[in-house]
Design a protein around this nucleic acid. Structure first.
Lengths: 190, 190
DNA sequence: CCTCCGAGAATGAACGTTCATTTTTTATCA
DNA sequence: TGATAAAAAATGAACGTTCATTCTCGGAGG
């Protein structure tokens, strides 16, 4: 009987409900129900709904970065590392559609804008992807475009195809995923 | 005193408010205020808020397609026509940030998913962009990928950079826009 | 006098949050 | 150990707001 048992249940309930029905479909009463606690209990663990949602996001973000670093080809050329990241990104998202849907909701909301602004203007930001792109720029293997543009070119379409796959607008398989990631590389490479 | 005077004012007020503050920030009472009518009056013109929002969207969609067809290089090569469309898209969006923000909100909502589903599965769909891509596929000048994937590769990043420009994450000028549109072409071309 | 449009108050449902109360756990001492 | 007191956690009904929508009535035009 650990302490964080309930806390975790609340976070997971939030993730599920937001993923399934959007922020509108996740009122605190429902979150409480799904987590098996009373409405008021949530406020013993989280100051507000905003705090709860941000915590849920960070929980997912960590899981995702962990997945990305598995078998990351550390010393390999830039292109190969990018293909790894892109492939993992897409496969992770379509394997965990609920997590993807939550992330999508989050990014397309004021939460997401704030989160992005902080990341962008907080120069201490030391994540693998930024490092990779900066290295690629130094080496001159990708187009000289602002970082946000490179991110958009490289990952925007990948998220789009994940969404379309989950909505059954297209059917992704391993080969198609590879070709899409390579197309994104074509967009940014010199 | 024409009839459609108030109707139009209501649509424009909806556009403005949703663009500025999102769907949450556009309650009917505020829409009414901004349009210079009373809350109840809206319901004399629109059956519900959903109907009002869909109508606002279609209004914008038409304006946008009209802009895109201005000086469209009808007989030119596929690449040139794509660059025209991409350039117009970006310039239109950053010149009319309110319209862009509304469209973004709309697309990232259940309204947008429904709209996309209908477009995709309604084969009678005869818009210029679909025609262009089908022609490009026939000629073999773009990668053989499903249409939704090509759309994502070609336009996803362009919408991303518009958003980032409007949020002041980047600063677009004509030259940078051109280079971005060309990068998108690199993504889809063979 | 009648018709009907527009106004804005009224309505009821839904929401996040609070708090007085109950239940469970932990600490204290014989 | 067992009894009891203190503390912590959990509860869920209730609150105040906000929202889309409906209702009712005054007044302008015929």
């Amino acid at each position: 009987m650990e302490k964080p048992d309930k806390r975790c249940a609340i976070v997971r309930a939030t993730l599920d409900l937001v993923a399934e029905q959007g922020f509108h479909g996740a009122p605190m009463a429902l979150v409480a129900d799904r987590a098996g606690v009373a409405a008021g209990t949530i406020y013993r663990y989280f100051e507000s709904k905003d705090v709860l949602i941000n915590e849920a996001y960070h929980y997912l973000e960590e899981r995702f970065f962990a997945a990305m670093m598995e078998r990351y080809p550390e010393g390999a050329p830039v292109r190969e590392r990018f293909l790894h990241i892109g492939g993992v990104l897409v496969r992770y998202c379509i394997d965990a559609p609920l997590e993807f849907r939550f992330l999508e909701q989050f990014h397309n909301s004021p939460y997401g804008v704030e989160h992005r602004r902080e990341k962008l203007f907080n120069k201490n930001n030391r994540d693998v992807i930024t490092e990779l792109f900066n290295e690629a720029l130094d080496l001159g293997v990708v187009k000289e475009l602002p970082l946000p543009v490179l991110f958009g070119l490289a990952f925007g379409p990948l998220l789009d195809i994940c969404r379309d796959h989950i909505l059954h607008f297209i059917e992704l398989d391993d080969e198609l995923v590879s070709r899409c990631v390579e197309a994104c590389w074509d967009a940014i490479r010199c």
